[in-house]
Simulated assay, not measured.
Amino acid sequence: MTDSHNTGVRNGMSAVELGDATWRKSSRSGAVGNCVELAWPERGVAAVRNSRDPRGPVLVYERADLVSFLERVKTS
């Protein structure tokens, strides 16, 4: 996939490439392990990964785009 706007990061990158990003899982997630984790590795960027594969691929979004998406989901 293509690079995010001026961030230098790309979708499908390895979580390892994000270095010291702090990953968080929703407090509403169960113990089953079917969860996504979210990190804000740099200003204006949000990263999402599968909690079962923490070294696997990461989806990277502009922070504003992800926040807008989450707001629309909450109101649906």
Rank of each mutant, 00 (worst) to 15 (best):
D20H: 07
E71F: 02
S68D: 12
A31E: 12
R55P: 00
A39K: 09
W23Y: 05
S76G: 15
G56D: 07
S76V: 10
N11E: 10
V16G: 04
S68M: 05
A47Q: 01
N50E: 15
A46L: 10
D53T: 09
S68E: 13
N34C: 06
E17S: 14
E71P: 04
G12K: 04
L18I: 06
R43E: 15
P54Q: 09
S14H: 08
L59D: 09
P54E: 09
E62Y: 01
G19V: 02
M1E: 10
L18D: 00
S76R: 15
L18G: 00
R10G: 03
G12I: 01
V67E: 13
D65S: 14
A21C: 06
D20W: 01
R28Q: 12
V67I: 13
G56Q: 13
V45K: 00
R43Y: 07
A31P: 04
T22L: 14
S26N: 10
A46C: 09
M13F: 08
T75N: 08
R24S: 11
R63I: 06
D20A: 12
S27E: 02
R63P: 02
S76K: 13
N50F: 12
A15F: 00
S14G: 00
A21W: 10
R49D: 03
T22D: 11
L18N: 00
E17P: 04
R52G: 13
V16T: 14
N50I: 03
H5C: 11
G33F: 03
D53K: 07
C35Q: 01
E62H: 10
G33Y: 01
H5G: 09
T2W: 07
V9F: 14
V58E: 03
H5V: 13
R24F: 03
N6M: 02
H5K: 10
E42R: 13
V73A: 10
S26R: 05
